[in-house]
Structures are given as structure tokens and as C-alpha cells.
Design a protein around this nucleic acid. Structure first.
Length: 524
RNA sequence: GGCCCGUUGGUCAAGGGGUUAAGACGCAUCCCUUUCACGGAUGAAUCACGAGUUCGAUUCUCGUACGGGCUACCA
């Protein structure tokens, strides 16, 4: 349900609140590196909104900066979305009728719009070289204004189609002089738009600089491309990170000039996900020991590996759940949501406007909950893979399933399964002898010899039967059962951990249990 | 510096003129458990500050402080 204040009559019927036309949203990453938490959350919110309204979720690759292009980053983004279960309806790999979905392949589309603005005196050619820009900034830099902008105050002092004569400009253009097209920000206008999270936001155009729209290599900047592509792709709602808020007036102005404000998508600027100090960065992850990327990412240039949630042992269900509630809740006390519940309950207006600090402890709690909640068979393949990576071959998946069922309560991350249950598949690598030896004596030795005899004759092999037998022999030997539990555990497990010892013995089986007791006795 | 956004326990947060200011994570104590967890119970801990409006502000308004973002031919 959308609160009335946010209803845009062009998209939602004011009476029934249903979308009037197909809702279309997009996620538009640059393929420059790993996909971090904030990025995935932006994907999630877009995805949920689209699915809730039976709309389309489009993935558009913003690769207009060839200098920053990183090989493999695009494929990596698709892999992450696939793992998280947030696949687009349209993209360079999923297809669609609004392509191409890579801005580099749309290059030819943008120039005409920039030229149109120039002929309407809403933009201009600028011939300033990087050196000239640099010296402009150096010359205008004062204590009051440490970072001078190319704006209405300086544009009249620069080399552009506003200061040069018509003939000069034509000459420069004809000779193929490198140039950019800049938007001419009007003076003293207030640009206002309604953000679905923040409400009304306004900017004074005099304070906004003349952003470059078309670069000298003919590629558009983000500012031009986002407006043109959102228009061409019929985007109805644009959700992006809060870091874009300061450039929103540029985009609103471009919409006004090019396509009309009535066609502009509804904006929502999502709060940032914060690290211990400011915007969450991969440095934070390295420094504080938690993942910030969805999946492992290796920088092809430096070879540096940044850990991902997937490889750390998070379940995708937990991952999207924890991301969804980082800055959003449905007003109830519910914290655990399936993707379907999120699609049903998500509402962009209930997203917090303030940034949220990422808490890795809470993230782990979510994973633990999901490990308990999901049937173990659901994530058994991943766990099996982890065992094999640790040199433990799993031949019987049913057995593994039973083991997982027994230990899942004590597993926070997937690799914990290996740590918590490796002893089911191989003899303990080492024994905590210090826990047994000091209190060991002949009586105990005798007891376990007797226990072996008893177990060998046992016909029933289950936890309660085993417990009963052990206690009976203990009573006969006049030893307190409490004195025997720990040694028995160490024999089977190797250390002071794991599920109830009789459950372990039951699952281990008769032969293996007896074998381990004998083996341990021989060790002492 | 300028512009923009924000501010309820350590963290995520509900609430939005009158409340004992929810809940969760984490922390502490206890119970359960003849290991370690899980689980259960209890507890410590919050409305940034100052004005104004009001009979009454955590809630509305304005300032201040603090935090964050942006300030590239990067996105």
C-alpha cells in the first residue's frame, strides 16, 4: 500500500492504487569491481518493487568509462545476482526488446540529445583542455572555495561556445578539436522533485555546476546516459544510492529539457550502508574481518582477493533477508522473511532515510536462523562440497543429511558443519587427552572393556538404549555416569564438543563406535 | 569551504503531541544440558543539544552540534 503523498498519478491509480502502466525498474552498475552490500540491496529493493507490481526488472551495464573498465566484472555481477536469486527480466544476458543493455553499445544514441540541448541553448560546447581546467581550479581556489566548479561564475572565462564567436566554434568543430558538451545550468531556479523516501527535495540551480554531458571521446557521462536510457527503456521508478542525490537536480533538469517532467521516473534515493566509519568500503571488510562483497572478487590487476558472503558460508536466503531489513522493516516484529514474503510486504516508503551501520554479528545471526529454518537437504550440496574441499569424501548423502540434521543448531556459517561433524566421517585427528588422563584409572578401563562387550551383544542401536546400557554398567561398576560421559565423548569425537554423546554413538553405528573405544583404549 | 541528506540504547529499529519508549543483535546473570551450542528466563542500556508552539514535546517549527554524501571529460 502506497501512502497517498507518494502517489504519482501517472503511474498509480489514485483510487485503486494499482499501477496504471507496467512498472519498470533498473539496476545500473558499472563493471569496475566487486558488488558490495549496498549494491545488492539496491538490486533487492528494485527487484522486490518490480515483482510486487508484476513489473520488469532491468539490468543495464553502465560502462561508459573505458578507463575504469575491469575485465570479468560484468560476468561477476551476473553471477552474484544469480546466486542471490535476483535475476533480471531484461539484460545483456537475459535478452529483452529494449537493448542493447550495455551503454558502450548504445554510444551512437546519446550525441543527438546533447546536440539538441546545444541548439536550444541549454548546453554548450567546451574546448578546455584538462590542463586549462586544472589551472582554472588552481586559480580560483581560495580558502572559502577549495574546490571551484565549472559553473555560471566561471563559464564566461573559459573556452566554450558561449565565449567564442560562432565562426571560431565552427572552425574548431570542423577541425576535429576535442570538446565536450556541458549543460548550461540556469541561474536562480529552484528544482524540486519528490523522493519516495525523503519526500520533497529541492535545489538552487545557481549552486549546481555545468556538468559534462558528452565526453570528448563521444561517450556520454552518467548524467546524460541515465536520463536518455531511463527514457528509452521506459523506466518508471529509479532507485539508487544516496550518493546520487546531489546530482539529482542535473537529471531532473535534463528530463525537463529533453522528455518532459511528466515522463520522469519516480526517484528514491536509498540510504547508504555504513561501515565503522562512513560509507562501507572493502577496506572495512579487510580491517574488521567480514565480507562486503556478495561473492569472492579477485582484482585482475593486483590479484587481490576480497571475500564474499557466499564463500564465507552465507545462505542466499539469509543474505537477502539481512539486506532487506538493513534500513527497512514492515512495522511488525517480524525479522525473518522469505523472498516471497518480502515481495508481498516490501514498501519503498518504509525504507529509512538515515544510513544504517552494518553489523556483522547480526548478519551471522540471520544465517544461523536460516540454517535452522531451511531443510538441510536444501543446502546439502554446498556442505558436501565443503567436506570434499577438506579432504573428506562423502559417499552417502542420506547419512550426511542425518548428520547435518543433528548438528545444524550449532552451525552459524556453512563451514561450521565441517568443524562440527567431521568426526562422523573420519577418526578424530587428535584427542584431548588432558581431559581424560588425569582422572583415568583401572576401574574406568574395566568399565569400557565391559561396555564394548555389552555393545557387541546389542541388538537395538539407538540413543536411549545406549544410554540405558551405559548407566546400568556404570551402576554395576559403582562409577558415577558423570565420570564416564566425558571420556566416552573424547573417544568418539576427540574433544569437548558436539551433540549429545549418545546421539553421536547412535549415528556412528555399532561397529564404528566399538572401533573408536578400542582405538582410544589402546592409545592410553 | 559550499550544497544536499540524516540523528530513538553499542548496533538494527517500532512508535510520531499524553506510552512503564516495542522488538531483535550483542553483552551480563540464571535455568536447561553429565561437553559445546541451541533453547528458556531475567537484567543493564536510548529519544544529540537549545529555543519556540502547546496545558503537555521523543514526536511539530527554528536554530546549534554531530555524522554522512557530493563537490572529475568516475559511476
Amino acid at each position: 500500500m502506497i501512502p497517498p503523498r507518494f502517489i504519482n498519478p501517472s503511474y498509480f491509480c489514485e483510487l485503486c492504487l494499482q499501477p496504471k502502466k507496467k512498472i519498470r525498474v533498473r539496476f545500473a552498475p558499472s563493471p569496475t569491481g566487486g558488488l558490495h552490500l549496498g549494491g545488492v540491496r539496491t538490486v533487492l529493493y528494485n527487484y522486490l518493487f518490480a515483482k510486487q507490481h508484476q513489473g520488469d526488472f532491468i539490468l543495464r551495464i553502465e560502462d561508459t568509462d573505458q578507463g575504469r573498465y575491469v575485465a570479468g566484472a560484468e560476468e561477476y555481477i551476473f553471477d552474484c545476482l544469480k546466486w542471490a536469486g535476483l535475476e533480471p527480466d531484461e539484460s545483456a544476458v537475459h535478452g529483452g526488446t529494449n537493448g542493447p543493455y550495455r551503454q558502450s553499445e548504445r554510444k551512437a544514441l546519446y550525441r543527438q540529445y546533447a546536440e539538441q540541448l546545444v541548439s536550444n541553448a541549454q548546453a554548450y560546447y567546451a574546448f578546455d583542455t584538462p590542463e586549462e581546467l586544472e589551472s582554472m581550479r588552481a586559480n580560483h581556489k581560495t580558502e572559502q572555495n577549495p574546490s571551484p566548479q565549472y559553473d555560471q561564475a566561471v563559464r564566461n572565462k573559459m573556452r566554450n561556445s558561449l565565449t567564442l564567436s560562432k565562426e571560431e566554434v565552427e572552425g574548431l568543430l570542423k577541425s576535429g578539436t576535442k570538446h565536450v558538451i556541458r549543460v548550461k545550468m540556469p541561474a536562480n531556479e529552484t528544482l524540486t522533485f519528490t523522493d519516495m523516501i525523503r519526500g520533497e527535495v529541492s535545489f538552487d540551480t545557481s549552486l549546481v555546476d555545468d556538468k559534462v554531458l558528452l565526453k570528448s571521446d563521444g561517450m556520454p557521462t552518467y548524467h546524460l546516459a541515465v536520463v536518455v536510457d531511463d527514457y528509452l527503456m521506459n523506466i518508471t521508478h529509479a532507485f539508487r544510492g544516496e550518493e546520487w542525490l546531489p546530482s539529482a537536480p542535473v537529471h531532473v533538469l535534463l528530463w525537463k529539457y529533453l522528455f518532459g517532467l511528466d515522463k520522469m521516473p519516480q526517484w528514491a534515493h536509498l540510504p547508504l550502508i555504513l561501515g565503522p566509519n562512513g560509507k562501507l568500503s572493502k577496506r572495512d571488510g579487510a580491517k574488521y574481518g567480514f565480507p562486503v562483497f556478495a561473492m569472492n572478487w579477485t582484482d585482475p590487476k593486483t590479484g587481490e582477493l576480497t571475500e564474499g558472503f557466499k564463500e564465507k558460508g552465507f545462505l542466499p536466503e539469509a543474505f537477502i533477508n539481512l539486506l532487506a531489513v538493513l534500513g527497512w522493516n514492515d512495522g511488525s516484529e517480524q525479522e525473518l522473511f522469505t523472498k516471497e514474503e518480502l515481495i508481498d510486504k516490501f514498501s519503498i516508503e518504509r525504507v529509512h532515510s538515515g544510513g544504517a551501520k552494518f553489523d556483522y554479528e547480526k548478519a551471522k545471526w540471520f544465517n544461523h536462523e536460516w540454517i535452522k529454518k531451511l531443510p538441510v537437504a536444501h543446502y546439502l550440496p554446498q556442505v558436501k562440497h565443503l567436506f570434499e574441499k577438506n579432504g573428506i569424501h562423502i559417499s552417502d548423502e542420506k547419512h550426511l543429511e542425518a548428520v547435518m540434521e543433528l548438528v545444524k543448531d550449532r552451525c552459524i556459517l556453512l563451514p561450521d558443519f565441517v568443524e562440527q561433524s567431521h568426526f562422523f566421517f573420519k577418526l578424530p585427528g587428535q584427542y584431548d587427552l588432558d581431559a581424560v588422563k588425569p582422572k583415568w584409572n583401572d576401574a574406568k578401563q574395566q568399565f569400557f572393556v565391559e561396555l564394548i562387550r555389552n555393545f557387541e551383544l546389542a541388538t537395538l542401536w539407538n540413543a536411549s538404549e545406549l544410554e540405558h546400557n551405559l548407566k546400568e554398567i556404570a551402576a554395576a561398576s559403582q562409577i558415577k555416569p558423570g565420570e564416564l560421559m566425558l571420556p566416552f565423548r573424547i573417544m568418539l569425537v576427540g574433544g569437548k564438543f558436539g551433540p549429545h554423546v549418545f546421539d553421536i554413538a547412535a549415528l556412528l553405528g555399532k561397529g564404528e563406535t566399538i572401533k573408536r573405544i578400542k582405538h582410544f583404549l589402546s592409545l592410553l
